[in-house]
Design a protein around this nucleic acid. Structure first.
Length: 367
RNA sequence: CUUCGUGGUGCUAU
């Protein structure tokens, strides 16, 4: 069984779930690890119904699930419709007597939050007697997700030892709720507690700057990022490009962009979006072509950015060509955002019939 | 022998 489990996990690691399943179904002796590997594979690929199907089969075979099984199964409950599954799994966890395990309890709390049941999430939190920093952070994040920043703050203030993630979640929550000032206030407080902001913290605080449009804040935050040695962190640089452009300084965005040693599709898309936002449609299109010239592969989001640029600049023919290139050269299926851009572009240019035709040919449902 | 519980960056309509 050890050998078979290793084979299984090799397939799963290569994301060859159908092969893994064939091996799994052929096993005469399955232990809990075999089940965990298979269920974990489905969970990772977000095949929720396969996870549940296998989990139920496991229960029918009288194999006792352990904490690892439950982590995977709970991970599959990710929507309000999956709440029923989650509750059923919760009942089994209670029955197995591992509800008080802090990791299991935190996973339950997270599951309820993800399924949109903040009340049950809070109940799970209150039931935990041995909370650790993860549990607190997940509870804060649950409130942040519902936009209840006051509740998030109450939990945050009650917390004993807060870590970088606690602060980052709060900062990101305030930024997302449009409370940029509150987010920005937390930044120095965090440092006063002796915590060092990491890349995620910077991305959250930059979000706050972008929502307020405060260029001076961006410059200050940029300076701090250099102080803590994040000057060559691509994620922070990408966020800086976007935020500088949003706050009106295309020049600073360009400066960050030009000084990067490596640029990925996010860096380029940030720059393209910034150029387009400032009315430089031709330059945005040129940047898109330069990106391809440098061997960076465009994705759906970069196509949306450049198509929007074409739309606003009235570059109808270029836009149509890009659309063809996207489907033919890159084999991408136009998503709802791409289709919106195309319809917007055609409509703006006065080609209403072609726009209507495009809508009826769309592979995605119109809204 | 198992992938075992938290946070973060780009696009459209806006």
């Amino acid at each position: 069984t050890f050998v078979a489990n290793n084979l299984l996990s090799a397939y799963v690691r290569c994301k060859r779930l159908q092969d893994a399943r064939r091996v799994f179904d052929g096993l005469v002796k399955k232990d809990v690890v075999s089940w965990n590997v298979m269920i974990g594979g489905y969970a990772q690929q977000n095949h929720a119904s396969d996870v549940m199907e296998l989990f139920h089969k496991m229960c029918r075979d009288n194999v006792e699930a352990d904490a690892i099984t439950y982590f995977s199964v709970l991970k599959a409950c990710v929507s309000p419709t999956a709440l029923k599954w989650g509750e059923e799994v919760h009942a089994r966890i209670r029955h197995a007597g591992i509800e008080s395990d802090v990791r299991v309890g935190t996973a339950l709390l997270k599951m309820y939050a993800t399924c949109g049941s903040i009340k049950q999430a809070r109940q799970a939190f209150d039931k935990l007697t041995n909370r650790d920093v993860f549990s607190w952070n997940v509870m804060i994040g649950a409130y942040v997700k519902t936009g209840s920043m006051d509740d998030a703050r109450l939990v945050f203030d009650r917390m004993g030892k807060r870590d970088v993630i606690s602060w980052t979640v709060m900062i990101g929550g305030y930024a997302e709720s449009g409370l940029g000032e509150k987010a920005y206030e937390l930044f120095p407080e965090m440092k006063r507690e002796g915590l060092r902001p990491d890349a995620a913290t910077f991305m959250s605080i930059l979000n706050a700057c972008a929502s307020v449009g405060a260029l001076e804040w961006v410059k200050a935050v940029h300076g701090h990022s250099l102080e803590v040695g994040l000057e060559s962190d691509m994620r922070v640089s990408n966020a800086l490009i976007h935020t500088y452009a949003k706050c009106g300084s295309l020049g600073d965005a360009r400066l960050v962009f030009d000084n990067m040693g490596q640029r990925d599709v996010v860096s380029w898309t940030g720059m393209i979006g910034g150029l387009a936002h400032h009315g430089y449609g031709h330059e945005a299109l040129e940047a898109f072509r330069n990106m391809i010239g440098e061997g960076v592969k465009p994705d759906e989001k970069s196509f949306v950015a450049v198509l929007a640029a074409c739309s606003h600049a009235g570059l109808l023919d270029d836009g149509r060509q890009l659309f063809l290139s996207m489907t033919q050269d890159y084999g991408m299926k136009p998503d709802v955002f791409v289709c919106n851009c195309m319809v917007d572009m055609l409509g703006r240019a006065g080609y209403l019939e072609e726009a209507m035709q495009f809508i009826s040919d769309m592979p995605v449902k119109a809204d």
